[in-house]
């Protein structure tokens, strides 16, 4: 993709094609065009690094006044509408290979032992958001009452946004910075980020961080989630999967 530098001809005197009587014309228009295209294409190599320098340099400022109206996030969905959350009727079902299947209300969930963390969020399409503050519950605590059976080795996350589904192995779900989060940056998880609960696993790309989790099933082994059925990697380690090597 590295284009050869455009051959500009900025100082060429133009012959009969120039405006009559003005043979001092220069081909600046194409120079601007080619330089802009070449600069833009070269940014495929330096764009992300440059952007993270800028947003790091502005660190504190950006928290108060985001550089871009999205705060760096892009919202990806697969269904016609985003799920809506009603605290009165919402239930999280925990089932599959467990001793005691459960239905937790939003209130029940928030009464579980709480954990909080600040972590980076990476999307497989290339954007990242630094320093996201999450609060929620670790899977060890979430599953303590349901008690996974000994032959359960993975968790299936079924999203209220159908047909989105994905899996983590129990080993992945029990990494120290993995949680089911219900709070983001000090506020209840916003609708577009998966209200009321989403998976947070910072070492994996966003599509493993299932939003709008409605059902958690313990299963024998991890299957293929929504994007994995479309060719993305099942183990979506940041910088080590999906064609990326860092």
């Amino acid at each position: 993709m590295a284009e050869a530098p455009p051959r500009l001809q900025p100082l060429v005197t133009v012959d009969e094609r120039g405006a009559p009587g003005h043979d001092d014309s220069r081909r600046i228009g194409r120079g601007v065009f080619l330089a802009t295209v070449a600069g833009g294409l070269s940014s495929l190599y330096w764009g992300k690094a440059a952007w993270s320098h800028v947003s790091n340099a502005l660190g504190g400022v950006e928290a108060a006044v985001p550089l871009v109206p999205t705060g760096g996030w892009r919202i990806y969905t697969v269904a016609a509408t985003m799920p809506t959350f009603d605290p009165a009727t919402w239930r999280l079902r925990i089932g599959g290979l467990v001793e005691h299947p459960q239905e937790l209300s939003y209130h029940d969930l928030r009464a579980l032992p709480q954990a909080s963390q600040v972590s980076i969020f990476h999307c497989v399409t290339g954007w990242s958001v630094n320093g996201v503050r999450w609060r929620g519950v670790r899977f060890k605590d979430l599953l303590a009452h349901a008690r996974p059976l000994t032959d359960a080795h993975a968790i299936q996350f079924v999203s209220a946004e159908q047909p989105y589904v994905d899996y983590l192995t129990l080993a992945q779900a029990n990494l120290p910075d993995v949680m089911l989060a219900w709070e983001m940056d000090g506020k209840p998880l916003p609708r577009e980020h998966g209200a009321p609960v989403r998976v947070v696993i910072p070492d994996m790309y966003g599509y493993k961080n299932v939003k709008w989790v409605a059902e958690i099933n313990l299963v024998h082994q991890a299957g293929s989630g929504y994007w994995e059925n479309l060719g993305y990697d099942r183990d979506a380690w940041v910088g080590r999967s999906n064609g990326y090597t860092s």
Binding site: G40, S43, G47, G126, Y244
Partner: peptide
């Protein structure tokens, strides 16, 4: 120039969703 760059980066986003060879970390930023 912007039209050309929109077209190229848009095609790369579309292709990158289908094939890792076209996936660049900076496409979406461009």
């Amino acid at each position: 120039a912007f039209l050309v760059l929109f077209l190229v980066s848009g095609l790369l986003l579309w292709l990158g969703e289908r094939d890792t060879r076209y996936r660049f970390a900076s496409t979406v930023i461009l």
